[in-house]
Amino acid sequence: MILTYGDSKRGLVRKANEDAISMKVDHLFLLADGMGGYDGGQVASSLAVESGGRYFSSLPPEKAFSEEGLKEAFCAANRAILAEKRDSPALQSMGTTMVGAAISGDHLYWAHVGDSRLYRYDGGELTQVTTDHSFVMELVSEGKLTKEEMRRHPRKNEITRAVGIDENMKVDTGSMTLSDGTLILICSDGVSGMVEDDELCRLISENPRKTGEDLKALDRSIMEKVYEAGARDNASLLLIQFWN
């Protein structure tokens, strides 16, 4: 059994919500965090989840539910944004992060570009599965910055990879087997940048996750922490709860 819940909110600083989430295609979950100004960010993130979802649904299931199928869907999103930029000079600076997960049985396939994240919660532990494509994460990988320092760095919002920028976009992919009770959290940096991983883990562990209403309550708990911390960016998340 899979329970799901998605939410996307405008923060306290931005004039518009430039995030987009989609659960329109069965067992496909997409989240994008747009960039490129008031109009560009909204266009890019919406195009990404819509075109990516449409391409994914056009594939035969045995092809779609695979790392390669998700990667192709991301590439379709990339082409759609690049095409829109060619037709709309005012949107030249737009692009977006993108995270996707597709579930078949007890197997999850994921794909990722940018600094939005996919986490896995199991047995009381929260693990970040994706690696941020960001300037500060490169410094962390090189041992020049700690994860605590990363959160306060003046260039923490600079991403090194995005959808809609390069025709030869690189997409990270992976897969995992889901256990009874596994929770998947997909979120924009408006969530992960406002709430520490330890706090996210605590909120998940303290909330029951047996019903859709439980997931809605967990979402409220997380969003409350985002706004208490200042909600400096738009905040979006997808919750996917797996039970055998």
Rank of each mutant, 00 (worst) to 15 (best):
L145F: 02
L145A: 03
T146Y: 03
K147V: 12
K147E: 14
E149S: 04
M150K: 15
R152F: 08
R152V: 12
H153A: 05
H153I: 04
H153M: 07
P154Y: 02
R155A: 11
R155G: 00
N157S: 15
I159R: 02
T160V: 03
T160L: 13
A162F: 02
I165L: 13
I165Q: 05
D166A: 04
D166W: 02
E167Q: 10
N168A: 15
N168Y: 11
N168G: 13
M169C: 13
V171E: 10
T173F: 05
T173H: 11
S175Q: 12
S175D: 08
S175H: 11
M176D: 14
T177I: 15
T177P: 00
T177R: 15
T177L: 14
S179N: 15
D180Q: 08
G181V: 08
T182K: 09
I184V: 14
I186E: 05
I186Y: 02
S188R: 07
D189M: 04
G190V: 04
V191H: 08
V191N: 05
V191F: 10
G193R: 08
V195A: 07
V195L: 09
E196G: 05
E196A: 15
D198H: 10
D198C: 03
D198K: 14
E199A: 12
E199V: 15
R202S: 12
L203W: 02
S205H: 10
S205T: 11
P208Y: 11
R209L: 13
K210Y: 11
K210E: 15
T211V: 07
T211M: 08
G212T: 12
E213D: 15
L215A: 03
L215R: 10
A217H: 09
L218H: 06
D219P: 00
R220A: 13
S221M: 07
I222K: 12
I222F: 03
I222C: 07
M223S: 06
E224V: 02
E224P: 00
E224R: 13
K225F: 00
K225Q: 13
V226R: 05
V226M: 08
V226Y: 05
Y227G: 02
A229V: 01
G230H: 04
A231T: 11
R232Y: 09
D233H: 07
D233S: 07
